[in-house]
Simulated scan of single mutants.
Amino acid sequence: MRRGDSPVRVGIVGLGNIGHHHAERLTDLGETLVGGVDVVEEARERFADEYGVPTFETFDELDDAGVDAVIVTTPNAYHEQYAVAALEAGADVFCEKPLADTLDSAERIADAARDADGFCMVGFNNRFLPAAEVLKESIDDGQLGDVTHVEANYVRRRGVPGRGGWFTTKDVSGGGALVDIGVHAIDLALHFLDFPEIVEVSGQTRSEFGTREDYTYLSMWGDDAEEVAFDVDDHATAFVRTADGRTLSLEVAWAANRPPNNDFVVEGTEGGATFDRNDNALTLHEVGDGGADHFRDTSVETRDEDAHALEQEYFFDAVRESEPVERNTVEQALSVQRVIDAIYRSAEAGHAIAL
C-alpha cells in the first residue's frame, strides 16, 4: 500500500530510448524502479545491465513483481495492450503521447481508465515548461482578455526520425509528423484554450521528403533502416473551430524548406503572447495609452527546468496520494486524438469534418 512519502514502485513497458529517458528521471527523483518489459531480448539485456533491475517479456511477470505505477513507452500501436492491462491490474498508468495509434484504441484506453481504481496520465511534458506555466496563468488570470485564436507551429527543417523504423510505419505509429510532434502542438494549443468543444476540423497532410533518395539532412534523431519504408505524413496543416467561435491553426512538419519554428502565438482581446517552446521563452504583447499610445512587448524570464522530470514528479505525487491527476488527463488526450483523427479524415475527404 502506498503511504506518505514512501517511494513509488514503478515498472516500465517499452525499453527503448524513451524508456531509458524515463528510467533516468524516476531514479533521480528517488522512486523505485522495479523492472521493465520488452518483447525484444536485446532491449531487455541493455536495460538490465544499465539499471540493475530484472526485465521481463510479458506484463504479467512485471505485475507479479509488484508495482504501484506503470510507464508505457512502447510504439503507439501497443499502448492499448499494456495501458489497459496495467489499469485492470490496479496500477496507475503514465502513457507516453499520443494516447494511442487510432481513435478507437484511444477510446478503449479511456474506457478502461474510467472503470479502473487507478488513473491514467498522458505524457504531454511541454505543459510543464516554466514559460508555458506562466503563459497559462496569464490566460487564466484574464491578463490577455478573452483568448480568441492560437497559432501552433512545430516545424523542423530536416527532422524525420529515422526512415524505415516504427515512427515511419503507419501500422505501428498510426501516422507521421502529425502523430509524433503535431500531437504536442495540438495538446498545448488546446491547453491554452481550456479544451473547448470542437465543432469542425479542416486539414491537409503531405508526404514530400520521407521517400526521396536525395533526402538531405545534417543530423537525425534515429537512423535510416536498410530498407527505407515510409508510408506516413511528414507535413500537416490544419484549422480548428470551436463551438464558441475560437480558432486554432496548426503547422507541423518533420521536414520543410523553411526555417524551423516551434512558436505558439496566443491572441486575446486585451493582449497576446508568443511562446517559443525550444527556448522556453515567453513574450507578452500589450498596448496602452498612458503618456502616449504605445505598444509594449515584455520578455518573461524563468528558470531552466527539465519538463520531463517535473511531469514525472507530478505523476508520482498523485500516485502516492492515490488521487487522480487533474493535468494531462486521459480525457484531454482523447480530445487531442479526436483532432488528429479528424485532420486525417479531412485530408482524405478533401473537405472539413464536423465533430
Rank of each mutant, 00 (worst) to 15 (best):
E270F: 06
A185C: 10
A112N: 10
F316L: 09
G268L: 10
D111M: 01
F239D: 01
P324Y: 05
T269Y: 12
N262C: 02
D140A: 15
V252S: 03
E321W: 00
I343N: 04
G291V: 02
G203A: 11
V336T: 14
E331V: 01
V325R: 05
E45D: 14
D224E: 05
F239P: 00
R258P: 09
R320F: 07
E305Y: 00
S207P: 09
T298I: 14
Y217F: 13
R303Q: 09
G203L: 08
G203Y: 03
R296V: 09
I109E: 07
P7F: 12
T247R: 04
G164T: 00
R338Q: 15
W254E: 07
L218E: 15
D187C: 05
G203Q: 08
G159Q: 08
V37C: 11
K170R: 14
G291Y: 02
A177H: 02
A131H: 09
P7A: 11
S105N: 05
D263T: 12
T148E: 14
F124H: 08
D146L: 06
E313Q: 15
L334N: 02
D146R: 13
Y215H: 08
Y215C: 03
P260I: 02
R206D: 10
N278M: 09
A352Y: 03
F275Y: 15
A281E: 13
D60I: 03
H235R: 13
H20C: 13
D187A: 08
D141W: 01
V336P: 06
G350R: 15
G16A: 13
V13S: 12
S207V: 08
P75F: 07
A100V: 10
Y154P: 02
A116T: 11
E270C: 10
V319H: 04
S138L: 01
Y215F: 12
T27Y: 06
V319Y: 04
G182D: 12
P98N: 01
R46Q: 12
A132E: 02
V10A: 12
H22W: 11
Q312C: 11
D306W: 05
V10P: 12
E267V: 14
V266K: 11
I12Y: 10
F315K: 05
F275A: 07
A281K: 10
T242W: 07
T274A: 13
T168K: 00
F167S: 01
A65W: 06
P98E: 03
N262A: 11
H21N: 15
R296K: 14
T329W: 11
G118H: 09
E96I: 05
R303I: 05
V172F: 02
T74P: 06
V39D: 03
S335N: 11
E213S: 15
